[in-house]
Design a protein around this nucleic acid. Structure first.
Ligand SMILES: [Mn+2]
Ligand SMILES: [Mn+2]
Ligand SMILES: [Zn+2]
Ligand SMILES: [Zn+2]
Lengths: 139, 139
DNA sequence: AAATACTTTGCAACTTAGTTGCACCAATAA
DNA sequence: TTATTGGTGCAACTAAGTTGCAAAGTATTT
């Protein structure tokens, strides 16, 4: 709803323009992560650039996080209000090769990996590919 | 050297054409994973399509593995002769945001993640972004 | 050896996602 | 009100990847 969307934007210090409210509203209703092309498709008429820049702003301000699922199109999904996208609070993502949906496994934290000496981690992307629960049952 | 390259191709059952030998030779000399555009640049004159299809064949036949490092260009690196690219034998990759190189951390296995019920893992991509050993020291 | 089938290669054309420059508009501060 | 700042929309572009198709090369059969 409108209220919680404005609250999210306020928390993350993003000016709540009409466009941004709309985009965030759509994103918040998604069951799966979506990409710019899919987002664009949800509008009867909207400019790709504006949506592109809205997503970019959202990512910078940590309203949403981006997911590189290996399909060639970056996906996006909402962050929790408390999320700061630090390496230690990141979760695993899942890409289903059958239904081609990308899911946030919000409950599964990315495990800590030991890096070789002098390597410094700033961010981690972990995507498991395979069959999602719905698709694995349909066999 | 030529010998080991032909051996690799033989092991993975790929017909050793001149083009494939050349590509594999270049790939085997790389310190970091490279993408199609970079591979193309290493040839004075070569057709992108052929290189593209060579890489595709190599990935299918597990001569090389692909790495989605989040830059928008898929990177490729050689697999061990014994590699079957099963989820349990995959390693972590590292992308340095400073030198922009993608490295195989071959010694660091991707940790096993517990998936929610009915999810089936076929493949995993884990990329850590940050500063590599060389770049972190140069500060 | 010649004919046939199959595979690989090269060219051109195309798709798609992402990105940039620039002008215009809206909100806000001076 | 005017100046400044930030957001939006359009058009044009880049870069990576991908496809169809024909030519060239390789292997197999007759
Ligand atoms: Mn997520
Ligand atoms: Mn690797
Ligand atoms: Zn699925
Ligand atoms: Zn580096």
């Amino acid at each position: 709803m409108k209220e919680s969307i404005n609250k999210s934007l306020e928390i993350k210090k993003v000016k709540p323009t009409a466009m941004r409210q709309l985009v965030l509203d759509i994103l918040s209703k998604q069951e799966h992560a979506i990409g710019l092309p899919e987002l664009e498709a949800q509008f009867a008429q909207a400019d790709r650039t504006t949506l592109y820049r809205t997503l970019k702003t959202f990512v910078t301000k940590k309203v949403i996080h981006s997911i590189d699922d290996g399909t060639g199109t970056i996906k996006y999904a909402i962050c929790k209000d408390t999320c700061q996208c630090n390496p230690n609070e990141l979760h695993v993502h899942f890409y289903c090769t059958k239904c081609e949906k990308t899911t946030c496994l919000t409950d599964i934290a990315i495990p800590d990996v030991p890096l070789p000496q002098y390597y410094i981690a700033e961010n981690i992307n972990m995507v498991v590919k395979g069959l999602c629960d719905k698709c694995s049952k349909k066999n």
